[in-house]
Design a protein around this nucleic acid. Structure first.
Length: 922
RNA sequence: GCGGGUGUGGUGAAAUUGGUAGACACGCCAGACUUAGGAUCUGGUGCCUCACGGUAUGCGGGUUCGAGUCCCUCCACCCGCACCA
């Protein structure tokens, strides 16, 4: 009876399907545990061995928790809307729904092959109308609500209308336009169009004309995080700013709660830091300066350093700022216009690329320092961004390096307010210096001065404290076909929400996927879908990729519900995701949006918690280890790696799947490509050895490995354990197929503890020896702790140690081997179930009781102490653990080796750490 | 530039959190069994040295009886952000 993994794995996978072994109920007396993977976008290329790393980790955890008595939700689904399917449709004419269905089927097959415990009855697909109906519904909830800053939460828009009717917008500053202000009487007189326009400035999902990242090549608008250095993250196409009417989510209103929520969740420090940086909270003040000789205009700046107010030597206004036209003096008009032309001519990309060059122009206007009346020249420059703060800054060259460089470049005199702390060579951004030349702040430490200055500014009525965020409201429109249609219609150009009963707004069939004339999405071309009647048109944009993924974890709790996105009792039961496993690439995008949606749904009373993911694990990436062959230049002869220095060669990538370790399969190589049919080889020791190189896993480099192939050769259990054995889950590491043999040998060795090739089952019911019990309980302790802490690589090691030791002991006792199988189940479920049944069990091992660690079996009565002299280990001596220190000292000092190393010198001190070591100090 | 992280054998890595550095594997070397081995088993394997022993966790310093682990300086690499006032 040998370990026939192919038959075993097939048998149990079928059995588990037949018995609904992974079906999870929403009603259980057990405590719940929700283990979630970031669901994949089902691309056309399928999975490579790097993808399942996270899924295996979460599967081990889910199975472990189940054995420990939890009711575990561990679902899987598809983030199925997205650009690649549409791009493919553009190229081939195949409908995205068709290719998506094909791809998900393929992914599903690959996943099933690895033996995951997903409850497929809860499978979701974001492109399914039964799913996106609820994405649209939640969008409407956002559209129909606003963020009440006094309550710091989302509230229904009807509440806001009631407030307007009684008080106007006093006390509820308009987040979309701070200048809007009206009384109750004025509100009542507004037309419906005007009222709805104002409401739009408050809604959490809103429509605005805004500069968006327009990517002509992709024919769509991209979110800020989809643009990297001025080009599209996907494809690297140029991106320009364009004004379009776009949907947005008012995520900025949640900035502070998103920041504070980070304190309550277990994400890695790096991940939290990335989100904090993205949110970019800063505390400072807005200060308004009068302009000399211009009573109609003022310049309002934002600064985080009000303490440096006496060091202001110039002002800089963003070139796009509306003030520029109003304050420029006639004699500077030409200079300014020339500069604005220059700015206009530069693409976003160029501006990003040349951050170091210093450019600007003087407006001719002077602002007046309200504290000392000093006249401050007002400049414009690219380095001030219109979109941040007030779009204008007060420049303090002695404290800010950019201001310093600007001042030096344009010969603007620098005022030093920090004495010796400023060298004149570069700015010093310290907050600890003592202020000078600063009037009422003289002699004050800068940190303290910040508050004093801010108080003074507020009391003089020339400004106020202000908190700013780098984060922008997120664009929620895509000019694309393959996404959720908006449940919005325009009547005479005014947007109206549909009602839940009108949902879903299904995607109509289209013949082509080309953009509309004005850059709208392909939906704009389907006129009978768009035009409901003469005055009523549908929204033709679709939602972005992160719409469906922002709330999917809620749907798994109640995936078939037809009356709501998920019943409150179901989301209350499953509650937050206990462990969320996925890659770091979603650090700022998906996670922030998902956190915001959760908070909004919580505010609106739809769910009972406001953070979606309690704990986040970021699996590392699996890199490719490429194999190289060396072709002698100008020939079809390949020279082995060790001999390549003797020739002039070119290194070529070779498919890693036809290389065993580093030894090339020459026949397979000849058959790989026609060019190599009659290749010649210069061998070393009769073998052709390849070079290796670590790089990204990519089809182009021929270093991708399909999990199916590995599973076919070694089995799913081996594959699962090997992926875990590679190293810590969070760490990135290269894939080496060769190394898998160690894990495979281990499983075969384990099998032989239970079954012999000839004799069959060899497990005996005899009582276990103390040695055997010690091995078992050491293993229980380590596996239990390691599994709980996602330390799967060390857990696999412990299994190996255990099996090695039991093999040495020739152990075959049921009381040892049966519990061991339960420990192994999360890692190697098929093999465990098979042996479990061979041992005579009739119920599934999936719900077996987890072995309980008992200290008494591992307790040692004595310890073999390393004996060090001055920190260097010289010998070992065994002492009972309950023996007195004085007795130890005596024996140790009498020891021959110790005597030798003490060289007759007097003992200064003896350090005895019980159960650890002994150090003799001389 | 700012923030986060990582540096340990030929390779992936471990180290009970300050206590015998290199567990467990891959690879390599030697051997056993075998018609054969890409099966299985045994032994060896950080470096220097015939050995005694010395030396070793990116570099240099410090704290300590004792440092891979704590502190300081520097170096290298990876990831994220990047004119955010």
């Amino acid at each position: 009876m040998e370990y026939n993994f192919r038959a075993i794995e097939k048998k149990w996978q079928e059995h588990w399907v037949k018995t609904h072994a992974y079906r999870v109920s929403n009603n259980s007396p057990k405590p719940k545990c929700y283990v979630l993977d970031m669901f994949p976008y089902p691309s056309g290329t399928g999975l490579h061995v790097g993808h399942p790393l996270g899924y295996i980790s979460s599967d081990i955890y889910a199975r472990y928790k189940r054995l420990k008595g939890f009711n575990v939700l561990h679902p899987m689904g598809w983030d199925a809307f997205g650009l690649p399917a549409e791009q493919y449709a553009l190229e081939t004419g195949q409908h995205p729904a068709v290719t998506t269905a094909q791809n998900t089927a393929f992914f599903r097959k690959q996943l099933d092959n690895i033996g995951f415990s997903f409850d497929w009855e809860r499978e979701i697909n974001t492109s399914d109308p039964n799913y996106y109906k609820w994405t649209q519904s939640i969008f409407l909830k956002l559209f129909n609500s606003w963020f009440d800053r006094s309550l710091q939460k989302a509230v229904g828009i009807d509440k806001l209308i009631a407030l307007f009717e009684s008080n106007g917008n006093a006390g509820h500053e308009c987040p979309g336009d701070r200048t809007i202000s009206f009384t109750a009487a004025e509100w009542k007189q507004y037309s419906e169009a005007q009222q709805r326009e104002i409401l739009m400035h408050y809604r959490l999902a809103f429509l605005a004309y805004a500069e968006v990242n327009w990517c002509a090549a992709l024919g769509t608008v991209l979110a800020n995080d989809e643009v990297v250095n001025g080009v599209s993250e996907r494809g690297g196409h140029p991106v320009v700013k364009k004004k379009m009417r776009q949907w947005f989510l008012r995520i900025t209103e949640y900035a502070n709660r998103l920041l504070e929520g980070l304190e309550t969740v277990a994400y890695s420090e790096a991940m939290k830091e990335m989100q904090r940086n993205w949110i970019g909270k800063s505390q400072g003040a807005e200060i308004t300066f009068k302009i000399d000789g211009n009573t109609d205009n003022v310049v309002t700046v934002y600064t985080t350093r009000p303490d440096t107010i006496f060091g202001v030597d110039f002002m800089v206004v963003a070139p796009e700022h509306e003030l520029v036209a109003k304050i420029t003096t006639p004699d500077k008009k030409e200079d300014i216009e020339k500069y604005l032309d220059y700015v206009q001519s530069r693409s976003e990309r160029e501006r990003m690329a040349e951050v170091k060059s210093i450019t600007g122009a003087f407006t001719g206007a002077y602002a007046v320092n309200p504290f000392n009346g000093k006249l401050i020249p007002v400049w414009i420059s690219e380095y001030v961004l219109a979109g941040y703060g007030t779009g204008a800054i007060m420049a303090v060259p002695c404290g800010d390096q950019r201001d310093f460089l600007f001042a030096r470049h344009f010969n603007i005199p620098i005022t030093n307010i920090i004495g010796d702390a400023f060298t004149g060579e570069e700015a010093n951004p310290t907050k600890d210096a003592i202020l000078q030349h600063s009037d009422f702040l003289n002699g004050v430490n800068m940190k303290a001065a910040m508050d004093i200055a801010a108080d003074k500014i507020e009391s003089m009525g020339i400004g106020k404290r202000q908190i700013n965020y780098k984060m922008r409201d997120s664009g929620f429109s895509r000019q694309r076909y393959w996404g959720e249609p908006f449940p919005i219609v325009y009547k005479n150009g005014i947007p109206y929400a549909l009602e839940d009963k009108d949902l879903p707004v299904t995607l109509p069939h289209v013949e082509n996927y080309k953009p509309g004339e004005e850059g709208e999405g392909p939906l704009a071309n389907i006129t009978d879908w768009v035009n409901i009647d003469a005055d009523t048109k549908r929204e033709t944009n679709t939602m972005p990729g992160y719409a469906g993924s922002s709330w999917y974890f809620l749907r798994y709790a109640d995936p078939h519900n037809t009356t709501t996105f998920a019943d409150r009792s179901a989301t209350d039961y499953w509650n937050q995701v206990d462990v969320y496993v996925g890659g770091t690439e979603h650090a700022v995008g998906h996670l922030l949006y998902s956190r915001m949606w959760t908070k909004a749904l919580y505010d609106l009373g739809e769910i009972g918690f406001d953070e979606p993911y309690k704990k986040l694990i970021n699996q590392g990436m699996i890199g490719g280890s490429s194999r190289l062959v060396y072709r002698i230049r100008g020939t079809n002869t390949f020279v082995s790696h060790g001999l390549k220095e003797q020739y002039e060669t070119d290194a070529l990538h070779v498919d890693v799947n036809i290389v065993d370790g580093v030894e090339l399969d020459i026949e397979a190589f000849r058959n790989w490509k026609p060019d190599y049919n009659n290749a010649e080889f210069v061998l070393e020791n009769g073998k052709y050895l390849c070079g290796t190189q670590l790089e990204k896993m990519s089809k182009r480099l021929f270093n991708t490995v399909n999990p199916n192939d590995v599973v076919e050769k070694y089995g799913a259990d081996t594959f699962r354990m090997y992926e875990m054995f590679l190293g810590p889950v969070e760490q990135s590491k290269p894939w080496e197929t060769k190394g898998i043999e160690g894990v495979h040998r281990f499983l075969k060795k384990l099998w032989r503890l239970y079954a012999d090739e000839q004799k069959g089952l060899i497990v005996k019911d005899a009582p276990a020896t103390p040695e055997e019990l010690k091995v078992l309980h050491k293993t229980i302790q380590k596996i239990d702790a390691d599994t709980e802490h996602f330390s799967y690589n060390t857990a696999v090691s412990q299994f190996m140690i255990c099996v090695n030791e039991l093999s040495t002991l020739k152990s075959n006792k049921r009381s040892i081997l049966e519990p061991l199988l339960v420990l192994l189940t999360p890692y190697a479920p098929h093999l465990s179930e098979e042996l479990w049944h061979l041992l005579g069990n009739t119920s599934s091992i999936l719900d077996a009781p987890y072995p309980v660690f008992e200290e008494k079996y591992v307790k040692e009565s004595a310890f073999n102490y390393p004996i060090a002299v001055n920190g260097k280990t010289r010998t070992e001596l065994s002492f009972a653990l309950d023996v007195e220190n004085t007795a130890i000292e005596e024996t140790v000092l009498a020891n021959e080796t110790v005597q030798k190393w003490m060289e007759g010198k007097p003992l200064k001190k003896m350090v005895i750490v019980k159960g650890r070591m002994i150090n003799i100090v001389i």
